[in-house]
Amino acid sequence: MSTSSVPVLAQVQGEPLSLDAALAAVRDRHAGAVVAFVGTVRDHDGGRDGVTSLTYSAHPRAAEILRAVAERTAALPGVCGVAAVHREGELAVGDLAVLCVVSARHRAEAFAGARGLIEELKAQVPIWKDQAFADGEHEWVGL
């Protein structure tokens, strides 16, 4: 649980992500806005087409670092709830890879919180992906 009174859901998981669960985690009677970023596996990356699948690998401390990132978002003025959930394991094109959901008293706070959350997550949380391409090649991203 969060060190503040703002609820925080932060986890790295092998199971499929649930936007409904993330929305429920940030629900708050004071929130006038909820902003969700939903990251999905796409069929291209870095100007190259043909991604067929990818495998996310997480550092053993990834969940702990993700929680710290989410806690920083929860401490922002006006934020009412934070959910940050990232998949690990093998995913197919179209699968949900990451959810960042922030509820806040007003829309500007919710948008700013969600944007900052995904940007900090991508910059700080040690999760890497091994992309498989249709031609049989693989490429690690984020190492």
Rank of each mutant, 00 (worst) to 15 (best):
L54P: 04
S53A: 12
A132L: 12
A58H: 12
L17I: 01
D135A: 03
F133Q: 01
A132Q: 12
L96E: 15
F37N: 04
L9I: 01
G142H: 12
V35Q: 00
H30L: 08
G142K: 07
A114T: 09
L19R: 12
G116Q: 13
A112T: 14
A108D: 15
A31H: 03
G89F: 07
V141Q: 08
C80F: 03
A36Y: 07
S2Y: 08
D95N: 06
A132I: 00
H138L: 14
Q131M: 13
V34E: 04
W128N: 06
D43R: 01
G47K: 07
E120Y: 01
V12W: 04
D95A: 11
V85K: 01
L19N: 09
E88V: 13
D28M: 03
R107K: 08
T52Q: 14
L96G: 13
V93C: 03
E137K: 11
S57K: 10
S2D: 06
F111M: 02
G39W: 03
H86I: 02
R29L: 11
Q124P: 07
I127Y: 02
G39R: 05
G47N: 15
A134R: 08
E15Q: 13
K122C: 05
D130Y: 09
V69G: 06
E88S: 13
V12T: 13
G47C: 05
F37A: 09
R42Q: 00
K129V: 05
G39E: 08
W128G: 05
A70H: 12
V85M: 00
P7Y: 04
T3C: 08
V41Y: 01
C80R: 09
A104E: 05
E15T: 14
I65L: 15
D28I: 04
L19I: 07
L143R: 10
A92G: 15
S2N: 15
D28W: 00
L23K: 15
V98C: 08
Q13K: 09
S103Y: 01
L9P: 04
G47Y: 10
F37V: 02
R67T: 12
V12F: 04
T40N: 10
V141A: 06
R72K: 09
L17T: 02
G113A: 09
I65E: 15
P126W: 06
V12H: 08
L117Y: 11
P77R: 00
L121D: 01
W140S: 11
R107M: 08
L17N: 00
V12S: 08
L91Q: 05
